[in-house]
Nucleic acid binder design. Structure first.
Lengths: 239, 239
DNA sequence: TAGTGGTCTAGACCACCTG
DNA sequence: AGGTGGTCTAGACCACTAC
């Protein structure tokens, strides 16, 4: 959160231009050379801005012919969230009312799979946190989070908001990356009770290991989502 | 598939060096300047190679301190597949025996949601294909694919292999990108029968719209996977 | 303060598509 | 052949980290 680079600015402006229909899907964008002139910069910098747009799935480029706007995705569906967005509900549902209810908050020794994914020994205690997340007062997800106690001191109050923001401000730990694994599973008694569904109902599970700027995994979590209503997308671009 | 760029070569070599332990997780990689010397190239090119490694989740860089190897993920789990890999089973399970059984192959007019995602009118007919995929003779997935008939002529034989390869060779259509949406759902009668599970059991659904090099969506598919066993991962890197 | 990675430049050349 | 995007260069300067 600090200085804004040139290519980020250009990215924002181009995005706005596309959103507002100043460039249409029927014609290619102006050539990179021309954009470089317009924004008084070099082609490399334009390419960086275009790469961001491409990652968003908004445009695509064809060597030899030009850069084009992808026929629009419907971005209005609030239940459809980017799988690649780093933070959880706190960020993705900006503008909606988000609440958390803590079902459990304790410390214990880590299980073997947790030792492995967090890169810690069997003797290093971890917090275990279970929270139900509500968006606009409707049950949204059930999250089980495990985090080494050595990372930072956590209390009840922290759990009501975004743990990431707290860690950044208080422990100097920045979220730098994560591996997410998704699969379907049947809800066990605990999950079913938390999500207010039947035991055995289908749930979407997102398992996440989060990394700090030092490459150290500092959080392992399992998030359970309701079937059919909670959907996550990812845009794939080849080369 | 043609010329290999310098940064791709460097990427390959660095990857090999990391895999073979020539660089270890305890020390940073050589500085970019030094790598540029070693590979007789410029820093920008080194950065492109490093970006590929970073996308793989293999390394991460910290401004000011260096580039480091991420403590290894276990890549041995065959059931864990990259969500961002563009092709389906044909590619991801290379080395395993893959078979397809076609349950249905017909043409019809598209539903409204299909018209929208494929960008076609209600009058343009589509193929509807239902296939069960087997990996090493075990049921792996059930796929419902919808594709405009105007794209290419498809016959039974094509369906036994990779549709993408066929389209590339015969219709000049290259897979350029895709949007995938994942969610959990309860199996209906058709899905349950295909996957040999109970009606109402949990399934993972991956909905995909595939784009050609012209930005034209040419395929819409729903793939159903078994709960708990089929998992997909994605590595997220922030800036 | 030294060293690192991130940005940015102003070009050159190459690969590819479209006339 | 002309125009497009992709690669690559050889630097400069900036932001950040570590000592």
């Amino acid at each position: 959160m600090s200085i804004i680079y040139k290519y980020q600015n250009i990215y924002k402006q181009l995005k706005q231009d596309i959103d507002q229909g100043r460039y249409t899907a029927d014609f290619p964008l102006p050539p990179q050379e021309q954009l470089a002139d317009k924004y008084d910069t070099s082609r490399m910098t334009i390419k960086k801005a275009l790469a961001l747009l491409s990652n968003d799935g908004l445009i695509y480029s064809n060597q030899g012919s030009g850069t084009f706007i992808r026929k629009s995705f419907d971005a209005s569906n609030k239940e459809l969230l980017p799988l690649a967005a780093p933070k959880g509900a706190t960020n993705s549902h900006a503008g909606n009312q988000i609440k958390s209810k803590t079902l459990q908050f304790s410390a214990r020794l880590p299980y073997e799979n947790e030792q492995e994914s967090l890169g810690i020994t069997a003797n290093e205690p971890v917090y275990e946190i279970q929270r139900v997340r509500y968006v606009d007062n409707r049950v949204y997800s059930f999250e089980q989070t495990v985090m080494p106690t050595s990372i930072a001191v956590i209390d009840q109050k922290v759990l009501e908001g975004s743990i990431y923001d707290y860690l950044q401000d208080n422990a100097g730990i920045t979220l730098k990356g994560a591996r997410r694994t998704v699969y379907a599973s049947h809800a066990d008694k605990t999950v079913a009770a938390a999500l207010k569904i039947q035991t055995g109902d289908a749930t979407l599970v997102i398992e996440q290991t989060a990394f700090s700027q030092t490459g150290q995994p500092f959080e392992h979590s399992l998030s359970y989502f309701l079937p059919d209503s909670s959907k996550f997308y990812i845009d794939i671009n080849i080369n």
